[in-house]
């Protein structure tokens, strides 16, 4: 069908005196057609009970240590502040904060309070939820370059209070925070970013 035939030199690999396997035709040259195995199933095969299956729901749960850098970042969010760090070796100011510079491989000690505003680096208008469920009202994820950082340094967050058609790369946006009493020290303490 597709010409994927192979020329097989059986004799070369065979040890002296070995017996060819019963189901393999022997001979110095063996032409064998490539097979592309596999049995596609449809949803119907499951509904009609044509195939058996077993299910399992894992009970996996984690409590990740935030450590020093992200721990302080989250504390800042709780206080309504956006914190970054500056590496004195490469003179970069970055967010999210980190305990060491991945380029210079040096510890970072200098903390910087950044503006809670920035510029849309890129965005999407997403009609699909994380688990592939279709959405009527789209989610608006964006990478937002935060003011006060080095060029092209941003965070992933969401946009809000904006007509999706009006969103542009380069648009200036500002964080909309949850009320102080509702903040828990999480990235979601910022509800979204809205156009300035």
């Amino acid at each position: 069908m597709n010409g994927l035939e192979t020329t097989r030199k059986e004799t070369k690999l065979k040890k002296k005196g070995s017996v060819p396997q019963a189901n393999v035709p022997s001979g110095p040259l063996l032409k064998r057609k490539m097979a592309f195995e596999g049995t596609p199933l449809s949803g119907k095969d499951f509904e009609q009970g044509k195939v058996l299956f077993t299910t399992y729901k894992p009970k996996l749960a984690y409590a990740w240590d935030t450590g020093r850098a992200i721990g302080r970042y989250l504390q800042g969010l709780k206080e309504g502040r956006l914190l970054g760090v500056r590496c004195r070796h490469c003179d970069r100011t970055v967010i999210p904060p980190r305990a060491f510079c991945e380029r210079c491989f040096r510890p970072i000690e200098e903390w910087v309070q950044l503006q809670d505003r920035g510029v849309i680096n890129t965005f999407s208008i997403s009609y699909v939820r994380w688990d592939a469920v279709r959405l009527e009202k789209p989610t608006l994820p964006a990478v937002i370059d935060i003011e006060g950082t080095s060029p092209r340094v941003g965070i992933l967050h969401l946009l809000g209070e904006v007509d999706p058609k009006q969103i542009k790369v380069g648009m200036k946006v500002k964080a909309v925070w949850k009320a102080a009493s509702e903040r828990i020290g999480a990235i979601t303490d910022i509800q979204y970013f809205k156009p300035e």
Binding site: L74, P96, R129, A132, P141, L156
Partner: peptide, 10 residues
């Protein structure tokens, strides 16, 4: 897990 997953990214 800390800075992005709470936003439920797809």
């Amino acid at each position: 897990h800390t800075t992005e997953r709470p936003l439920y990214p797809n």
